[in-house]
Amino acid sequence: MVAPTDGALDRAATRTPRRRLAVWLRRVTRTGAVRTLGPFVPIVVLWWLAAELEVFPAAFFVGPDAVLTEFLDLMRKGVLPGYLSDSLTRLAYGIGFGLLIGLPMGFLVAMSAWARRLTWPLLLFFQAIADIAWLPIVIVWFGFSLTAVTFVIVYTIVFPLVLAVVSGVEQVPQELVRAARSLGAGRFRVFVEVIVPGALPAVAGGIRTGLGYGWRALIAAEIIVGTSGVGFMMFDARRVGDVSEVFLGMIVLGVLWYAMDALVLAPFERATVERWGMVRQVEAGR
């Protein structure tokens, strides 16, 4: 057996701390906090540098410290919690009515040939009209009210959801439907036990997309129609020239949507695909 030389021992000794450091870095970078907040660190640093170096005039561009001060001030006064509560209430109304309308309509259009022939041109027509285009007539109809904002959110959610449901139903293999019918399943049982589970992955994706559109429609409606809410806060701050409040509103919107998507929508979509994604597995095995 050959004894290791002094040089080999020195190289092994230097490698060991490096390996430990590499293992530690891999473990740290795999944690949820680092993966979530890590990508934002360079953006915040660049933002801070741009503000400190006055790349843009201070009246038009503020740094993270000014936004943080504005956040603490609005929280202390209770202004920001009140605006957030109003925005989330409007969003909840819009989501509720949007799902109640979009899901049944989507399955009706997907399952009925006459309903599809009758409504498909209308769906494509209204899908092409942006939600903002409805705001002038909505103001005439409902005024500056919760109903006006809810109408815009529901309109924005319904059409992507209907199209996603139709796409999901079309992806269900007809072999599964025929197999269920050959085993004696009636139309209702085929719908509940074959069509709905097979379409759920696409439906989950449609809900996630529709709610994203609804969130943006909420802010746009609050800017134009609303008398409170985060969108109104940003528009009112622009009117008085408070740039830090505008920046704060943008950050709050991003944080809220990221939290909703990461904690609710993404797990829901992932769990739905894992639970009901057997249709794709069956197709892959053929």
Rank of each mutant, 00 (worst) to 15 (best):
P4F: 02
D10V: 11
A12W: 08
A13T: 08
A13H: 05
A13K: 09
T14Q: 11
R18M: 15
R20C: 10
L25V: 13
R26I: 12
R27N: 15
V34L: 14
R35K: 09
R35E: 07
T36V: 08
T36C: 10
G38A: 05
I43T: 11
W47C: 05
W48T: 14
A50I: 09
A50V: 05
A50P: 02
E52C: 03
L53M: 13
F56E: 12
P57T: 09
G63F: 05
F71S: 08
L74K: 12
M75V: 12
R76Y: 13
R76C: 06
G78T: 11
L80Y: 01
G82W: 07
Y83P: 04
S85W: 15
D86A: 15
D86C: 14
L88T: 06
I95Y: 14
F97A: 15
L99G: 02
L100I: 11
G102I: 01
F107I: 13
F107Q: 12
F107M: 15
R116C: 09
F126K: 06
Q127R: 12
A130C: 04
D131M: 03
I132L: 08
W134V: 02
I137D: 07
I137T: 06
I137W: 07
V138I: 12
I139F: 04
W141M: 06
F144P: 01
T147R: 03
T147L: 03
T150E: 07
Y155K: 08
F159V: 08
F159L: 10
F159I: 11
L163H: 01
L163D: 01
G168I: 00
G168W: 00
V169E: 00
E170R: 05
E170F: 01
E175D: 14
L176A: 11
A179Q: 05
A180W: 07
A185K: 00
G186W: 04
G186A: 08
G186T: 03
F188T: 11
F188Y: 13
V192R: 14
E193N: 08
V194W: 02
I195T: 06
I195W: 04
V196M: 07
V196D: 02
P201S: 11
P201M: 09
V203D: 10
G206N: 10
T209L: 06
T209W: 07
G210W: 07
L211W: 05
Y213R: 14
W215K: 10
W215M: 13
A217R: 00
L218D: 09
L218A: 06
A220S: 07
E222F: 03
I223E: 05
I223M: 13
I223S: 07
T227F: 10
S228D: 09
G231V: 03
G231F: 00
R239G: 14
R239T: 13
G241Y: 02
V243F: 01
V246K: 04
F247T: 04
L248P: 00
M250I: 08
V252E: 13
L253N: 06
G254A: 10
V255D: 11
V255K: 07
L256S: 04
L256W: 01
W257Y: 07
W257L: 03
M260H: 00
V264A: 10
R270V: 06
R270C: 09
A271L: 14
V273N: 12
E274P: 00
R275T: 11
R275F: 05
R275V: 08
W276T: 06
G277A: 06
G277I: 04
G277E: 11
G277M: 02
V282Q: 12
